[in-house]
Nucleic acid binder design. Structure first.
Lengths: 150, 150
DNA sequence: GTTTATGCAAAAGTTTTGCAAACTA
DNA sequence: TAGTTTGCAAAACTTTTGCATAAAC
């Protein structure tokens, strides 16, 4: 699991004319971790410990900026909550209905995406797969077994 | 464009022990139209005219019930808004970034869905395609043309 | 020194909840 | 009549906004 090169992103954002404030860099570093899937609230809570002056508005502003500039994708797998993912490109996401965990999927689902569908111009696509994750299946199984023993 | 057979659903819900109230039937009828993609708010506003005593809480309760029982699917293509779709089965949805319109897609995207991915049990999947719809493309085109004439 | 971003607090918007009253079977 | 569901109003949550202050370049 390699570390993401956010210094390149910092350079690019600078070139685009953005001010690289403390808050933005902190959020960028936090969010660029491999396989990270965070809500704005999670990012805020975690960074608030280290940067007590941080405000939730800044978190939302920065996440919007990073999404707009193509460094994050917004995952709308969970109603009423946007989750941010720094792994780019069309890749399916798995959502556990039991524990809410999100996982990137890299295989088994193949998608052919045309630039045009029914006369509409296609720009991006998201695939969301719902079910029960490995860990929750294990828990359910051991629960069933202990019940059948009694 | 055929009309949906909601009387069958009414029968099934009765068999499952649900009370078939006026409100539930009205919402069911409203939502079962072909190619309908409604938010709770839209359903509420439209039915409120005919049934002034209807409350938004009942709309949410009923939509949740119908989703749980498998008669509706929740489309989370738009952040902060759940859209309900009575067309079942895995079918991709197209979302126009310009006008917000949602369209069912029945072709061009093929999906192979396994019952198991990375050890996780798969139960359902959603495919969301984002872009600019036919109508908005047309508007943009005519706008560009009229500008280049001046 | 000028411009841009931040933080705060309030607002906006969607969805949920608790409970008495109304309705369904 | 017993058991559910409804409607209301308030609460809970997420996200956005406006504006004075602070930070970045």
């Amino acid at each position: 699991m390699e570390k993401r090169d956010y210094s390149k992103i910092v350079r690019e954002l600078k070139d685009k004319g953005y001010t690289l404030s403390m808050a933005r860099i902190a959020i960028l570093r936090y969010v660029m971790k491999e396989n990270a899937h965070y809500t704005a609230e999670e990012i805020y809570k975690n960074l608030k410990e280290e940067y007590p002056t941080l405000s939730i508005a800044t978190v939302y502003n920065t996440l919007k900026l990073l999404s707009k500039e193509g460094y994050l994708q917004q995952i709308m797998i969970d109603p009423n909550k946007v989750i941010y993912d720094s792994t780019l490109g069309i890749h399916p996401h798995f959502y556990c209905k039991v524990c809410g965990k999100i996982e990137d999927i890299n295989s088994d689902i193949k998608i052919q995406l045309n630039k045009e569908i029914n006369g509409n111009r296609v720009e991006e696509a998201h695939i969301y797969v719902y079910g029960v994750c490995k860990d929750c299946l294990k828990k359910q199984k051991s629960k069933r077994e202990s019940l059948s023993l009694n």
